[in-house]
Design a protein around this nucleic acid. Structure first.
Lengths: 130, 130
DNA sequence: TATAATTGTTAGTTTTGTCTAACAATTATT
DNA sequence: AATAATTGTTAGACAAAACTAACAATTATA
């Protein structure tokens, strides 16, 4: 019985897959390799693990397709990323780069509830200070 | 040449070692095993890795002593933990338990600069709203 | 359409961190 | 002091993620 949850690492792959498909209609392994700074071999491994957990459909030499389960997870993580970045940028006044860097690590570990509160707080705050 | 940086996992061991020594004057492996919910064997491994990186002094069947380097790192992480908990509790109004849970994961990944800004923000905010 | 370049896969290795089970050392109890 | 209980270590497995090097498939180009 395989574990169905995603590690931070696999969430990053999924996020990247989703974003590329959104913007370009498709993704290739070489592109994930470039954007995530990992070897092509590591991408192949990750694609197999994601497929095993049903977040994507993938067969050797085939195209990478994201499943509805994958879309759900990806949008969830990306939503967190967006709000966290906004919080660090608008509330704490960090550069976009550092805001995004922090968002990128925290998005994988923050609890649902904490995120919800942070989201409300950030939106309140941004409303008042814009 | 061994890597001198600490993973999240090893930081947790070090934090636990430091806190126990502070409160009780010493720690035993069994206590770390209990508090961190890992086997005694895993603790032995972790102690060797921490000793190799010079964060603690340790020899088989010997007592666990934290080095000055270890104290520096532990207090840094604990400092982050404290402020992050305060932020989640006082600013976002989470329960102490959930505040601490989030602090526990974020303390290992937040950048120095982001932490500094968050600290200032939290102290400002707490000052105004107490 | 051959050939060359690019992309993807496989096999084998490494590191980190975990586990269990068996054994050794230490500490407590009778 | 001898025995029992607790604590610590070792050995051997396993899983997740990464790597390189060699090879296979695909795509582009001469």
């Amino acid at each position: 019985m395989s574990d169905l949850t995603l590690s931070s690492g696999l969430e990053d792959y999924l996020e990247c897959i989703y974003n590329n498909i959104e913007h370009n209609g498709s993704v290739k392994a070489i592109e994930l390799s470039r954007e995530l700074n990992v070897s092509r071999a590591s991408v192949t491994d990750a694609l197999h693990r994601l497929a095993e957990k049903k977040y994507i459909n993938y067969e050797r030499y085939g195209s990478i397709e994201i499943t509805s389960k994958g879309i759900e997870k990806a949008t969830e993580v990306i939503g967190k990323h967006t709000i966290l970045t906004k919080f660090f940028e608008k509330v704490l006044k960090l550069s976009n780069e550092e805001a995004s860097e922090n968002a990128c690590s925290i998005e994988h570990v923050i609890t649902q509830n904490a995120f919800k509160k942070l989201k409300d707080f950030t939106q309140q705050y941004a409303g008042k200070n814009d």
